[in-house]
């Protein structure tokens, strides 16, 4: 392997970004807490929406089950039982959610949970609003395979939302707020159909600067998304498979 490439490849993966599994198995409580927070941030919305649709739960019950699931994940050390050789982490978590909901429903001892979960603001109203906006009819997701696809899509949405937020913070830290605004308007607010020329006029920039800003923002977005993705994968092989799932399906 040429040294040049190897060095560059390593640079893309700062060693401080541990996988959640490594962090969850760490003796360092700070690392363990960080692992759960990372997982929680990436998964709570997909889990909530999945519980709402797959298990046809009312909003309030789905909120309890979502919080309860993450408490269970923490209390029963479910992450430690995960074997990357057997499945993807997201498939494992989805099956854990299914088992959890079945058990909770059977035992009918569902309680208000949330005492030990990481301190993250859970905007269930926003999640509920997203479900409403998407106008998802439970009947329109008839098969198990469709639910898997739905969970995958929501998982990607959650990953990208976090990556976009990271990018916004990066742009602020680098003093490039306009770059983020251009990226936001061109790539995220896609209903606007705004052109490079219009953006250039709006921000009083040459068109080439708009092109460069978009190019930089997309590159950084991709880098951040890959970094976050690697963090929530159980193994390097899983990461490679998930890269294809997240980015690869668009190409022929």
């Amino acid at each position: 392997m040429p040294d040049e490439i190897q060095t560059q490849a390593h640079d893309k993966f700062p060693p401080t970004r541990w996988s959640v599994l490594e962090a969850a198995r760490s003796n360092d409580p700070t690392q363990r807490e960080r692992a759960l927070e990372t997982l929680f941030a990436a998964y709570w919305k997909p889990v909530y929406k999945y519980v709402r649709l797959r298990w046809n739960q009312q909003a309030e019950d789905a909120q309890d089950l979502t919080q309860g699931f993450f408490v269970e994940l923490l209390e029963r050390n479910l992450l430690l039982r995960y074997d990357p050789a057997k499945s993807r982490l997201r498939s494992y978590l989805r099956l854990c959610v299914d088992s959890f909901v079945i058990n909770e429903t059977k035992a009918a001892h569902r309680q208000k949970r949330g005492g030990n979960i990481p301190h993250l603001a859970l905007d269930f109203d926003a999640a509920e609003g997203e479900l409403r906006d998407a106008a998802i009819d439970v009947a329109s997701i008839p098969s198990h395979a469709s639910l898997e696809e739905f969970f995958e899509k929501e998982w990607i949405r959650s990953l990208f939302t976090l990556a976009v937020e990271d990018l916004r913070q990066l742009c602020e830290a680098r003093g490039r707020p306009a770059t983020f605004q251009i990226f936001e308007q061109y790539d995220l607010d896609s209903d606007e159909n705004i052109s490079y020329d219009q953006l250039a006029a709006k921000y009083a920039l040459p068109v080439t600067d708009v092109t460069n800003a978009l190019s930089w923002a997309r590159r950084e977005f991709r880098k951040i998304a890959l970094d976050r993705l690697r963090e929530i994968c159980g193994s390097y092989e899983e990461f490679q498979r998930e890269v294809l799932a997240v980015f690869g399906k668009q190409a022929p």
């Binding site: 926003a126 790539d187 995220l188 896609s190 991709r222 980015f247």
Partner: peptide, 23 residues
Amino acid sequence: MKFLSDKALARLRDTANLPDLAG
């Protein structure tokens, strides 16, 4: 955090995967 519509999601998946040929 901003909600990403399906359209924005598809666009991000498309554009972020494109190789950046700058340089």
